[in-house]
Nucleic acid binder design. Sequence first.
DNA 1: TTGTAGGCGTTATCAT
DNA 2: ATGATAACGCCTACAA
Lengths: 337, 337
Amino acid sequence: MNIRDIAKLAGVTHTTVSKILNNKGSISEETKKKVLAIIKKNNFYPSEAARRTSLGRGGEIAFVSSKYASPFISMVLEGVENSSYGTGKYEKMLSTYSTRGSSEIKDETFMKIASGRLADAVIVLALKPNEDAMKEFKKTGIPVILLESRMKGADSITVDNVSGAYDAVSYLAGSGRKHIAIIRGVTGNEEVGPVPHDREKGYKKAVTDAGLKADNNLLEEVIEYTFEEGREALDNLLARNKKTDSIFCAAGDMCALGVMQRAQELGIKIPQDISIIGFDDIPAASLVKPGLATVKQPVYELGKKAFEMAIDHAENRLLDTVNVVIKPELIIRASAG
Amino acid sequence: MNIRDIAKLAGVTHTTVSKILNNKGSISEETKKKVLAIIKKNNFYPSEAARRTSLGRGGEIAFVSSKYASPFISMVLEGVENSSYGTGKYEKMLSTYSTRGSSEIKDETFMKIASGRLADAVIVLALKPNEDAMKEFKKTGIPVILLESRMKGADSITVDNVSGAYDAVSYLAGSGRKHIAIIRGVTGNEEVGPVPHDREKGYKKAVTDAGLKADNNLLEEVIEYTFEEGREALDNLLARNKKTDSIFCAAGDMCALGVMQRAQELGIKIPQDISIIGFDDIPAASLVKPGLATVKQPVYELGKKAFEMAIDHAENRLLDTVNVVIKPELIIRASAG
DNA sequence: TTGTAGGCGTTATCAT
DNA sequence: ATGATAACGCCTACAA
């Protein structure tokens, strides 16, 4: 059943039906009503594929991340999703793509979206499209919105990691802590991005401003940001510096929760002996005892803003790139009491 | 840049290029190599839309759920995702759709997928497509795989909720508990599905088999399955029956965590005074103290199996519907000690 | 092995 | 207000 079948049933041509379907041109109320009735009766929906071929546009907004299953990612996605419906603009579908952590799949995905003209705008979370893909996006005029990363030629929305870290560490220092440790991800590598580095920068500034001095024995590096690594990190830190009285876990809450669990096993009191602040504000942070203080990423706002920018670009074809920086928020809970 | 431009550059016709792109017909190694080189050099990818129009198929697998941001949903999705790449079949993209809890958006989404021929198979999580949509899916031959729900004419994969509940409650009874309460979702309503009902059924059977008797004062109903509701549920239960010595929270772990937190506030010792078993095994369940015993939903397997069935159907056009039932697993942690 | 011609279901243009 | 015709970019019998 296609547009021509409907036309035949209504005694008009497919052109008329198409116009009605798209609210284009002028159609008499009468035929409009008649055709619409037939469309509804037959439960007819036009072929998305054909419509896209004809329009030369994909009609969807693509969301690309390294995987689906992460509280962080799905929160961002929820922000995108909500604003996509909130604005009443849900004629544009939201399609999600995951690169499964493989750089090969990543390249493939971007090229497919760009060259295959699948989407009208692409929102990318914590990933960098390669050069070829960016060229292609530019050529096809598909706007790219980078979340948590930055490239020239693309819009970006990033979290101010320096300031988030600074606030957290300043709070620890302000409550009298003298030996503030930091646990962070690997730095210096192009692949991992600037996040760990920025957080360390904020940490160092806060430590210095508080009149303390950064000490390499107070630095611990993790790779996967896991709960398990958090447990090990605490052991390592204590082995190197027994005076450690507080920890800023820039590697995220999951890792911080590992630290907490290990501390409790060792009979270390939180926050009396060691106070802890994490990063992200994952749901579990508020469920554990004591509650985990943390730097809350404005994930929801991130997604919301991204969608708005995507729509703006897709519709107005604005060509100037925008770089938005959002400030994260320090949330104090008992672990940093 | 389209298939004809590539052809021109290579000195062949677009037909040849198409054949090469799709590995169809016989092409000399030489021209193949030449054309492929030009394709790569120009970073050419065929238009997905046109290809779909032409083929009359969507070329993607659709995943529809009520929202994205839930640990449960994203775990299922991860299962789907992993097997989609694991089988090396990632030429088929995975597109996700969310209905935002709105039945209107739900209907719209399904009709768009079905009638717009967007997908070659649809995986639906805990949602029921309406009659019209099912008819359309049948007509277009798009297989539907229902997860956690069941309809005639569609494949389904469900969790054996009765047995999961039975195991949990039997464990509580086996450890000497005499007043076992249940917290479950609303039942009897078509919209909410059979899950709460099935879990209560398992609960009742276990209670009876243990020589105890079910008592309405030991039943508490929640609506949203939230942490907050769990807190209230405990208060309500204790108000009605002070002897409550254990709780099976069929309404999920999040709710069970609420119960635990409230219990700790009230100075009730877990598991000594009251032991608790939840349902789902969300990540936080193993992070809290004491660890939350729970019935682990085989979410990952659910997703995996769903994808496999989707592919089987999409490729072999099998028409017999299959109903798979997966048994959940009881995970004992300290809260049920 | 390669090319010609027609079809997929839309939308867009330009008459009528 | 409506319709005839072409265009979108791809796929694929079938003919060469």
